[in-house]
Amino acid sequence: MHVDSARELKAELSRRLAAAPPGAVVASDAPGRWSGVALGLAPVGHGQVHLAVRVLARGDAARVLGALDDGARAEVDVRVIGPVRPQRSPTPGQLRQRTRPLVPGLSVAHPAVTAGTLGGFVTRTSAAGLLVLSNEHVLAASGAAGLGDPVLQPGPADGGTPADRVATLTASRGFLPTGNLVDAAVAALDEGVVADPTGYPGGPLADRVLPAAEVDPAEEVEKVGRTTGHTRGRITAVEVDGVGVQYDDGVHTFDDQVEIEGLRGSFSEGGDSGSVIWRSRDRAPLGLLFAGSATGGSAGGGVTFANPLATVLDVLGLTLVTDA
C-alpha cells in the first residue's frame, strides 16, 4: 500500500487501541498501561509499505488482525517480538576497560546503574566544552539521578569506581507514562578528561545528522556498543508508535521510533544502550539506541529500537560533534 494509506491505517488502528479497555485487544499480561501493540511502516517496494504490527505474543496477533477488514489484513506485517527492555546489562558480563581518551562505544554509567554505552559527544549552548551523550536510563538512572551526579567510565558493572569519574550529569529528559520521544541525557566532561569524538570504527561520522523524515526503511546501519561492539543491521520499520519499554519503575511508551534488525545475529544486546547509530553508505548519524527485545525479528534474534538522533538533539538543544 502507498505510504500515506498505511499512515491512515496506522492512525485508525491506534485510535481503536487507545479506546479499547485493558486486556480487550491483547493478552492480559501486557505490562502496565501499554496496549501491547506497537505500530509502524515496513517497506515492501519502491513507495510501497505494509503496516508494521509488533506484538508481545502470537495469540495477540489474531486479536489485532481481527480488527481489520480482509483488504487491510493483506497489507499488514505482523511480528511477535516479545518483551522490549532497555539495553542495559543487568550483570557485569563481558567487562569493558577504563580507557582514556574517551571514545564512542565505551562502557559508561551513573554510579547507580550497571553499564551502558557512551554514544558520542555533543555541545550545548548552556554548557561549556564537550558533553557525553547517552541514554536517560544510563546516565540519569531513569530519572532517579540529580543534576551534578557523577558519571563513571567504565560503568560499575565493568569495575568502575568513584575514581573513574569522567563527567557530571548536565541535562536529562525524564519519562512520561506515554508519548515519549527520547531516552537521552548528557553529562559535561570533568576538567582534564580528554575525548576523541572521531573515534568510531572506520573514522569520523558525517557532519550532517540525518533528519528524522529522511530515515528510510531498508537502509543498512552500524553502531558500536559496550556489549556487542561494532555491528551492522538494517532498518525494518520507521515511525513506530506505542513501543512499550519495561523500565525499573514500570512501562513507558515511545512514539516515532526506528526499528532495526541485525544482518548477522543480534544488532544489540544489554549494555549497548546509548550507542549512536549511523547509515553505512555515507556514515550519516541517524539514531540513539535505547532498547530492544531478545526474540522476534526475521531471524528470531530480537529487534532494536532507536530514537531518531535529530529528535534527541532538538529536544535537548544539542549539536553533535564529529570532528576533533
Rank of each mutant, 00 (worst) to 15 (best):
E214Q: 15
P101A: 14
G174R: 14
A237W: 08
A128E: 15
D190M: 02
D272I: 02
V245C: 07
K10A: 09
G271Y: 11
V315P: 08
D256W: 02
A27L: 10
D29W: 11
L309H: 04
V122K: 03
P111V: 04
A299D: 12
P83H: 05
R15S: 13
A145M: 04
G292Y: 02
P31H: 11
V80A: 09
R63V: 00
A112T: 12
R15F: 00
G270V: 04
P217K: 06
G250T: 11
L41A: 07
L309W: 06
H252D: 08
N307C: 11
V122S: 03
D323H: 15
S268P: 03
A167H: 12
L102S: 14
E75D: 14
D256Y: 01
E222T: 05
A67D: 09
I277N: 05
G47K: 07
A52S: 13
V76Y: 11
E239I: 00
G302D: 05
L139N: 10
N307H: 01
H110S: 09
G47A: 01
A144S: 15
L39K: 07
G192E: 06
R73N: 01
A145L: 10
R281S: 14
A187K: 05
L65G: 05
R281L: 07
T114N: 15
G160L: 06
A212P: 07
A188R: 15
T228V: 06
G119V: 08
D255R: 09
S268T: 12
D256T: 14
L9E: 03
T227K: 11
T322H: 05
G274D: 07
T295R: 13
V151A: 03
A157H: 10
L147W: 01
L318K: 11
V122I: 02
L131M: 12
G262N: 10
R85G: 03
W278S: 06
T168I: 15
V182R: 11
T295N: 00
G297N: 03
A145D: 07
D158S: 14
V312Y: 01
G300A: 03
R15N: 02
P177R: 04
S275K: 11
H2R: 13
H2L: 09
V321S: 12
D272R: 05
